[in-house]
Design a protein around this nucleic acid. Structure first.
Length: 427
RNA sequence: GUGGGUGUAGCUCAGUUGGCUAGAGCGCCAGUUUGUGGUACUGGAGGCCGGGGGUUCGAAACCCCUCACUCACCCCA
């Protein structure tokens, strides 16, 4: 998180609104969970992960309880599911802030924001497909084209344990060849070594056992169904056998969606997968689940990289300009227009008409409403079109609100709907 | 946690081996246009050169400390 000023901040709202609408159409409802959670909620799900062990903002509160600022949202939503036991399938979406104590860089912040989706109670591969394709379609609806899916399966807990043991045995044989950072993970978290990018480790992984060999028929069938489903939906992607992901709770399907338009090291704009064991680990009944998180800051970086956002329309219909009267006249006319349901703004202080017109132009308003001695005497105002050819017309002061409302309706009809399936700059 | 880079006008940046009142473009304000923005021309305002200390006749520039921002590693969204 960094400061986000206008007009950029307006993009956040538009993005969140578009996301809620998109997944709302698929039956997902918004959920809100606390930023503060008991440390145990996270400790139980990520014992071997940097996110939980090294990067968490945690502290003792006044009662001596260990509290954490959430580093991600899945654990908190799962905790809420366990606590309230809603009927399944329980399908929710959220936009939430997360905190990780790490050095900031492009696309990585100590406070970052994610759009996310979680679904509890559905074991079917169809759910995996729907959610992945749903996220893919969301990105496409923003206008993003340089994106691709990376997909993998890591099997169930038993397969992971078996594979972890085999992999650890393999790695111990060549621990000297590994990067020291990775060598330290061999005993307690061998799977994390797999997706290391360090050169020495990558070379030493030549000939390493493959997790796919540990999968039983059910797991293989599940993964095949996911692959077939996303391919049939036209998603561009590849299977990446090295994709493991950073949180312990994942089982079976894991995925990331990467943008090639981000000119920085952090190019994953969304990632997630299946976590069939998490609810049980938090004290609930065995419950399959699937979800993802997508970094708002990174999605916006990708949008910048592909230049897909247009200028947001101003909510100001009319900018009031007056000369020869009292400055309060502008305030009072603006208030009257707002009470009539219109957007209205004006400049403050003693400014020349020219200067006021400049403010009007910058405001983004469609019309300038000009009140000078002539209009005042006639009980009229001049309405000037600032976006078109500058056409002006005199309107009776009493009819101004109706006139502007009529203009607004007219322009909305004229704008129409964007072509279906096309690139849109107004998500 | 580790390593690099940058801090000069509102913004983006110049500033030659230390040497006159520190510059440009954009933006802003005003005028050309005594009732009209967005174009053009003219003029103007605006800077403890991030902060502190030091070296020197003299520091935006050199040294030390500090703060902020930024990029990469690691990790992840």
């Amino acid at each position: 998180m960094h400061d986000v000023l206008p007009p950029d901040a307006a993009r956040w709202k538009r993005l969140v609104d578009a996301f809620g609408t998109h997944f709302g159409r698929a039956g997902f409802a918004p959920i809100r969970t606390p930023i503060l959670e008991s440390l145990t909620v996270f400790a139980r799900v990520g014992e071997g992960t940097d996110v939980v062990t090294k990067e968490m903002y945690d502290f003792l509160d006044r009662d001596g309880e260990r509290i954490a600022l959430r580093p991600e949202s899945t654990a908190g939503v799962a905790r809420a599911f366990v606590q309230h036991r809603p009927i399944t399938p329980f399908k929710v979406w959220y936009a939430s802030e997360h905190f990780r104590h790490e050095r900031p860089q492009a696309g990585r912040y100590r406070q970052h924001h994610q759009l996310g989706v979680e679904c509890f109670g559905v074991p079917d591969a169809d759910l995996d497909v729907e959610v992945i394709v749903g996220l893919w379609d969301f990105y496409r609806s923003l206008g993003l084209e340089s994106i691709r899916l990376e997909l993998n399966t890591i099997g169930d807990a038993a397969a992971r344990t078996r594979f972890g043991r085999r992999l650890a045995t393999f790695l111990r044989g060549r621990v000297g060849d590994l990067d020291p950072e990775d060598a330290a993970k061999v005993d307690h978290h061998p799977l994390r070594v797999l997706d290391s990018k360090r050169r020495a480790t990558v070379a030493a992984l030549e000939g390493a056992p493959s997790l796919i060999d540990e999968l039983d028929d059910t797991a293989l069938a599940h993964f095949d169904a996911v692959r077939a489903g996303v391919r049939a939906a036209g998603v561009v992607g590849t299977v990446n056998p090295r994709l493991v992901r950073g949180l312990d709770y994942y089982t079976h399907t894991v995925f990331e969606i990467v943008s090639d338009a981000i000119d920085a090291a952090q190019a994953t704009i969304g990632g997630g997968g299946r976590y069939d064991g998490l609810v049980e680990a938090l004290g609930g009944p065995p419950t399959p689940a699937f979800g993802f998180g997508s970094g708002i800051e990174r999605v916006l970086l990708a949008c910048d990289g592909e230049a897909v956002w247009g200028e947001p329309a101003s909510a100001v219909d009319a900018f009031v300009v007056s000369t020869g009267g009292e400055p309060e006249e502008r305030r009072d006319l603006s208030l009257a227009l707002r009470r009539a349901g219109l957007g209205a703004d004006h400049a403050f202080g003693e400014l020349s008409m020219k200067a006021q017109m400049k403010h009007a132009d910058r405001s983004g308003a469609r019309f300038a409403v000009i009140v000078g001695p002539d209009e005042r005497d006639a009980g009229e105002v001049t309405v000037r079109d600032l976006r078109g050819d500058g056409a002006q017309r005199r309107v009776a002061a009493d009819d101004l609100a109706d006139h502007l409302a009529g203009e607004r309706r007219g322009s909305r009809i004229a704008a129409g709907r964007p072509p279906a399936g096309g690139r849109s700059d107004t998500p």
